[in-house]
Design a protein around this nucleic acid. Structure first.
Length: 826
RNA sequence: GGGCGAAUAGCUCAGUUGGUUAGAGCGCCUCGCUUACACCGAGGAUGUCGGGGGUUCGAGUCCCUCUUCGCCCACCA
């Protein structure tokens, strides 16, 4: 796709150039280009009322797509929602900033480049760290950011002059600053514990990045004989027999009468015949399995805790690649024949060995959740290692309170409970990754100094120890991509420079629009960091939209091949058709179902609507012409006829309902959402529906029809009709512009009296006009509509040919007869 | 194992605080190429609002229960 490669012939202002058929391909790119040239989307910080300007700011921060991403319907949905809101706010007179950007996406991007390397028969180790990072940076620079170009094609009115990147020099400064400050506050620490490890990506993962998947596995019951009385045994239940070489104890619950007498005795670890103790620990649940659990501290997070409590050794028997290997502590525990074997292959072997030894009591089917890497789907391995953690409880507290108090609202509200549960049970966040693509942990180690001076967190790169002057080495790890994402609302505005104009003008922003999947990955952490560094939440509303799914309800995805390429839709029907369809089909938080095999049907709603709009425009131009009409403001109330009064009344209603559906912009009082307004607004489907009804069922079906004769009859009334029609259509285009920006702009610029160089995108949102209460003309027109409806029904019932005239006037009462005579075109 | 949500027209879904004959888009049927539009217009059919019970003058809307789906969380090995 190409924005700039649009046909040059497009001239959207020439009134005589009005094709019978709307041609989005020939229109959209050119319009976008002109918006950009006019700086229509560039926010002016100096106009923000927060720093003395004349407009209240309104901000949306784009969830930064991965730098390697290409647009899919999910992005389309997400961006369209944001664009509707920002365009609405812009027209409402706010200094609107939609700040776009990209995420360097540590693991994901590294995986892409490693795959490339693999194609060349290389690994990242062949290149070495420096070369690998260089190569990745070049790759990102050359091919990254495609998605941002694609967003322009769907009309995204972001402020591209502020495009940010989580790995830019500027944002790297804020990442380092945040790390060091948290470290200095004691909120970042290094911990030695069992974490989630991806044996394919070769890095640790946070709890959120290790996704649980329900799996049908097996629970093996293995009997461990008592060391001093082999006739007796105790049976453990395990899902992972291959880890048994790392067993250092078996645990029972002290309250479990079955095993009380055995506590303190030893058992022999099968196959190895190693003595290990039977210990008592509450972790053992008498109700599960046999009530006896083997303790493998190096390969299970819970066992690790038990091991710590009982001061047990922690031999490692599986290596970083998920192969059977051992460290020095294991001292020959892994049998020779199993060494170097994949953990799952080893499992089968171990089971056979146990069977052969007569120690396998039974194997039962077991449903449980197994953690997988969210980037490559490999089964995650619990692994004992040193990692950097963020202490979350202190950070969570204000973030939790923010939602409870209404400073931040989550929509739809069903997510509030999930959020609170997570916040209440929050666990420390592992932020170090053993990959190369990302922000290096800003920690240096000095071999000469004693703790705590041997570990130095620094804002500047260090070459020598600040305490003793000797050499220091930097930590090898990089930070979780989501660490930099959590700073996005501040870092993109210039933090930590607190004098930054953007930061003062636009922090906090207003609405965050994203998918519920990343509520914890990202949203919750942004709120925490907002409080930690800015003392306030980064936004007041979180709009969590649904997912694009196929007709079978499956999430659209590349791997399933059931996706829809938004670019295909743009090329076939135009961006407006895509946008309108998505918005109209999306209830609050509801998924949008589309048929990837029938785009024509899936996007008929939007395409048909765009065509209708276009044709109303054509009617207007053909009947009114392109010369300026009498200014609507100069039309006296007394000059209006019933239809005019009626449509103006409907316009007021449409404005009111649209505003009500989208708004309110802010909490009405004190920056905090009152309970009764928490669920208000952001109903974009209602907005789309209202605007559509006004244009199609009110302007087109009735007002235009009622005006046909008037517009052909010279005289003052014709001038009034022209003026009102142009006014009403102009207002309708404004109401619709946030949803369907291209076609409305194209039509608006063709309206009689359009001033060259002005854009609908930057013009004002309609305000209600209010007819006098005593004005009955609108109600009269409604009466006429009802009569016409009734007549049509009767005609249809009696199967009267359309051309056949019926003298309805004969049966009508005199006052109505008069009105009907005047509305003869209906 | 907890928590949450959903079940409304053939399909996809709206129905904010309980109140007049339950709506939209797509699809379907009949008629119509009337000089903006057949990607259209006019008319029409289709719902015991998942089952059962309850509160109320009145419930798709509140309460209980059952059924079927879906999502999130979780150290029961």
């Amino acid at each position: 796709m190409s924005i700039s490669g649009a046909p040059e012939s497009t001239s959207v202002t020439a009134p005589d150039d009005f094709p019978a058929q709307y041609d989005p391909a020939a229109t959209e790119a050119a319009i976008y280009e002109r918006w950009q040239q006019a700086g229509a989307f560039t926010a002016d910080a100096s106009r923000s009322s927060r720093i003395g300007g004349d407009r209240d700011p309104y901000g949306i921060l784009m969830p930064p797509p991965n730098v390697t991403a290409i647009l899919h319907v999910g992005h389309g949905l997400n961006s369209t929602v944001q664009d509707v809101l920002i365009r609405w706010a812009r027209m409402k007179g706010f200094e609107a900033l939609w700040l776009p950007g990209m995420d360097h996406a540590g693991i994901a991007t590294q995986n892409v480049v490693e795959k490339q390397l693999a194609g060349e028969g290389l690994t990242r180790n062949d290149l070495g760290r420096e070369k690998f990072v260089e190569r990745t940076a070049v790759f990102v620079k050359e091919t990254g950011g495609v998605i941002l170009q694609q967003l322009k094609a769907i009309g995204a009115s972001a402020d591209w002059s502020r495009t940010a990147y989580t790995f830019s020099p500027e944002l790297s400064v804020s990442v380092r600053e945040a790390f060091v400050r948290l470290y200095e506050r004691g909120l970042i620490y290094r911990g030695h514990r069992v974490i989630h490890w991806c044996p394919r990506c070769l890095t640790s993962l946070s709890d959120e990045e290790a996704e649980g998947k329900d799996t049908s596995g097996a629970l093996y019951h293995v009997s461990y004989p008592l060391a001093d009385d082999p006739a007796q045994s105790i049976t453990v239940a395990t899902t992972r027999p291959e880890t048994m070489f790392g067993d250092v104890a078996v645990a029972v619950n002290a309250a479990d009468e079955r095993y009380q007498s055995m506590i303190g005795k030893d058992v022999l670890l099968p196959i190895l015949d190693l003595r290990i103790p039977i210990i008592a620990d509450d972790y053992a649940d008498p109700a599960f399995g046999t009530g006896v659990v083997k303790i493998t501290p190096a390969h299970d997070a819970n066992d690790f805790e038990v091991g710590r409590r009982h001061d047990l050794p922690m031999p490692v028997v599986i290596d970083a690649h998920g192969m059977m290997h051992e460290d020095a502590d294991a001292a020959g525990r892994v049998p020779q024949e199993l060494r170097g074997m994949d953990r799952f292959v080893a499992r089968e072997h171990v089971v056979k060995l146990l069977e052969a030894a007569g120690r396998l009591v039974k194997k039962e089917v077991h449903q449980h959740s197994v953690r997988h890497c969210y980037r490559c789907d490999t089964v995650v391995e619990p692994r004992l290692s040193d990692q950097w953690f963020v202490r979350m409880a202190p950070l969570a507290e204000p973030a939790h309170e923010a939602v409870r108090s209404g400073r931040v609202r989550l929509l739809p509200e069903k997510h509030v409970g999930v959020y609170e549960h997570w916040m209440t049970n929050i666990r420390d966040w592992n932020i170090s990754r053993q990959i190369w693509w990302g922000h290096r942990v800003p920690i240096w180690y000095c071999k000469e100094c004693d703790p705590p001076q041997d570990v130095i967190a620094s804002r500047e790169d260090l070459t020598a120890c600040p305490y003793c002057g000797c050499d220091v080495v930097q930590d090898e790890d990089v930070l979780d991509t989501w660490f930099s994402s959590s700073l996005w609302p501040m870092s993109t505005l210039g933090w930590p420079n607190e004098k930054s104009t953007d930061l003062r003008a636009f922090y906090p922003s207003d609405v965050l629009v994203t998918a519920p999947e990343i509520l914890f990955f990202w949203v919750a952490r942004m709120i925490m960091m907002g409080y930690a560094f800015m003392g306030d939440a980064p936004f007041h509303s979180v709009y969590l939209h649904g997912t694009a799914r196929d007709t079978q309800g499956r999430k659209m995805s590349k791997s399933l091949g059931n996706g829809i390429d938004p670019m295909d839709v743009v090329n076939l029907y135009g961006a407006d058709a895509l946008r309108y369809t998505l918005i109209a089909g999306m209830g609050m938080g509801a998924d949008v179902l589309l048929d990837p095999n029938d785009l024509d049907k899936s996007f008929a709603t939007g395409r048909n609507f765009a065509t209708k709009l276009w044709n109303i425009g054509r009617f207007l131009l053909m009947n009114v012409g392109s010369d300026a009409v009498r200014p609507f403001a100069d039309i006296a109330d007394s000059e209006l006829n019933r239809a005019d009064a009626w449509i103006l009344d409907k316009l007021d209603a449409a404005i009111r309902e649209c505003d009500r559906a989208i708004g309110p912009v802010h909490p009405l009082r004190g920056g905090v959402w009152a309970a009764e307004e928490r669920a208000s607004g952001l109903r974009l489907n209602e907005y789309a529906d209202t605007a559509r009804r006004f244009v199609w069922n009110e302007i087109a079906d009735w007002y235009v029809e009622a005006n046909k004769t008037r517009l052909l009859t010279p005289g003052n009334d014709q001038q009034v009709a022209r003026s009102v029609l142009v006014h009403v259509f102009d207002q309708a285009l404004r109401l619709l512009h946030p949803i369907v920006p291209f076609i409305t702009e194209a039509l608006w610029q063709r309206l009689p009296g359009h001033v060259n160089g002005t854009f609908l995108a930057t013009s004002a949102w309609p305000v209600e006009r209010h007819m006098a209460d005593s004005d009955h003309r609108a109600a009269d027109f409604d009466l006429i509509r009802e009569i016409v409806d009734a007549m049509r029904r009767v005609r249809s019932e009696y199967a009267l040919a359309p051309g056949k005239m019926v003298d309805a006037l004969v049966i009508a009462a005199p006052p109505v007869r008069g009105m009907l005579e005047q509305e003869s075109t209906l």
